[in-house]
């Protein structure tokens, strides 16, 4: 017996249904059910576990707020001075978490399965940032959220992880139970004036 997979918005991961369709010209919205996640949380100061964590993950755990380190199989996003979100292919999630937890049997660093906690949405296009800015300050920095950086913030009244992948490409992760709400919210703000 094997239970079947189901994404937040559909039943078939490969089809990547686009329920929030009908965006303004040049905009694209795509469900990213292929993004897996592991939540790394240290029980001690990061310096004590960072080396072992790097080794187990194969990627440098970032130390600066908002920064992302990219490795061959996964990338690590800074969340707090003692917590990181590791993105990986969904199929790698269990193995990655197991490696970290095996390396830290005393649980000074813990890897929790997290793929299903977050629903990832890719928003592309010149007006993507304006759409996100309807829901909150994407960044309070002078030049906004720099490409290659991430942030935890409020969007549309719910907490979200925002990653600025490329100039006009954003990845937004929101808690799974609020997926339908968030898609509904996106639909309600999609005709926002850009600029």
């Amino acid at each position: 017996m094997k239970l079947q997979l189901q994404s937040s918005l559909g039943v078939d991961l490969d089809a990547a249904p686009n329920e929030a369709g009908g965006l303004p010209n040049g905009m694209a919205l795509r469900e990213r059910a292929d993004v897996g996640c592991v939540f790394l949380n240290a029980a001690v100061n990061a310096a004590e576990v960072i080396e072992g964590g790097n080794e187990a993950l194969g990627v440098q755990l970032p130390a600066r707020p908002g920064s992302i380190s990219r490795g061959p199989r996964c990338s690590a996003i800074w969340l707090t001075p003692r917590a990181w979100l590791v993105q990986c292919p969904v199929d790698d999630e269990l193995e990655l978490a197991s490696r970290v937890n095996a390396a830290f049997a005393d649980k000074r660093l813990h890897a929790a399965l997290f793929t299903d906690y977050l629903y990832w949405l890719e928003l592309c296009g010149e007006g993507a940032e304006a759409i996100l800015q309807q829901g909150g300050f994407v960044s309070l920095e002078r030049d906004g959220l720099a490409v290659g950086h991430a942030k935890r913030t409020l969007v549309g009244n719910i907490p979200a992880v925002i990653i600025h992948e490329r100039k006009f490409e954003w990845l937004v992760g929101i808690e799974r139970s609020r997926t339908k709400y968030f898609v509904g919210w996106l639909n309600s703000v999609r005709d926002a004036p850009a600029g």
Binding site: Q6, D116, N157, R176, S177, R178, T179, K180, S188, V189
Partner: peptide, 18 residues
Amino acid sequence: ANARRGDLFKPRRLFPTH
């Protein structure tokens, strides 16, 4: 209020099994 009306009045949480 903007979008915060009707179904979007507050962020509703749904089960994955909804």
